[in-house]
Structures are given as C-alpha cells and as structure tokens.
C-alpha cells in the first residue's frame, strides 16, 4: 500500500510503487485535472507541487512521493481563487485548456518562490508546452497574478 498526502488528505493506494505519481493521481484517485502529455518530463502538463515546488509527476515514482505534501490543481484552491487562477479567468488565457493545469501549477510555484518575476525569470522557469499557443497570455497572466497576490497581501 502506498500512503500519499494529497491536497492535505492522506490517501492509501494499492498500486505498484514504481507507478508514476501521475497515473496514481489519474487512474487510482480520479484526480484527472493533472494531465498526461508526454510521459518524459518534456511538456509540463503533469505538473503538481511536491512540498510547494513544481514537479513533473509523469516521471516521479509514486513511492518517492510518500511522506511529501502533494498539491494538484484540484487542491490549489477550493474555488478557483488562487491569484493565478483569477488572472487566468480575467485574461481568458486557456484555449483548449489541456495544458493549463500544468501551466497554472508551474506558475503558482514560480510566484511562491519569486513574487514578482521578470520576463527572464518567467522564460527560464516556465518551460511548459502549449500547442494552442496561449504563451503571450500565460506571460501576462503571471504578471497579473503577481499583482493580484501583492494587493491581496496588503489588504
């Protein structure tokens, strides 16, 4: 039995310990917000937070995630109120949306680490692929989320 802490809850899963965390989330726990795009850590669609840092869950064995705090898109906020989600809605960032949980999780982790990233910071940290091409609104969204978060903190 694998024992995982996901979105603040402890979950027990009967899966081979080598199963990538992505597939445990999707097929065993029905947390399908985390997407499969490549399986080789190339696209970022499967990004989750492990202890607050962005991790590509398609190459992380579930056994290695035990004892860590895992957050998925479903647990980023209960009502889409995370600043990144707010900014994404405000700018209508998603197109097909399939890459967006990964984009949002990667962006949220970046802002956690660096509350007002420059364009260069964004370029080096957000390397997710979006085949629809939402990139300009992802960039704008990260800057906007930084503003929303900053205002929120003052208030």
């Amino acid at each position: 039995m694998l024992k995982l802490t996901i979105n603040g809850e402890t979950r027990e899963v009967d899966a081979d310990p080598s199963t990538p965390l992505l597939w445990v989330l999707r097929d065993h726990l029905d947390l399908t917000g985390t997407k499969y795009g490549c399986g080789i850590a190339s696209c970022g669609a499967c990004t989750v937070h492990v202890n607050g840092r962005a991790v590509r869950s398609c190459v992380l064995p579930a056994s290695a995630a035990q004892g860590q705090q895992i957050t998925t898109i479903e647990g980023l906020s209960s009502d889409a109120s995370h600043p990144v989600q707010q900014a994404w809605v405000e700018l209508d960032t998603p197109q097909c949306g399939y890459c967006q949980p990964g984009m949002i999780m990667a962006s949220a982790a970046l802002l956690e680490e660096n509350p007002s990233p420059t364009d260069d910071d964004i370029n080096s940290k957000i390397t997710n692929i979006c085949r629809c091409g939402t990139l300009p609104r992802v960039r704008e969204g990260i800057h906007r989320a930084a503003e929303i978060a900053a205002k929120g903190e003052q208030a």
Partner: peptide, 15 residues
C-alpha cells in the same frame, strides 16, 4: 468554457 479549465474540473476524453 474558462472556469472549468482553470480548476482541473473539465473532463476531456482522456479523463
């Protein structure tokens, strides 16, 4: 169709 694309709730065929 934006809201369900930012909170992970939209089910694509794969989901």
């Amino acid at each position: 169709d934006t809201r369900e694309k930012v909170d992970g709730s939209l089910r694509y065929g794969a989901d």
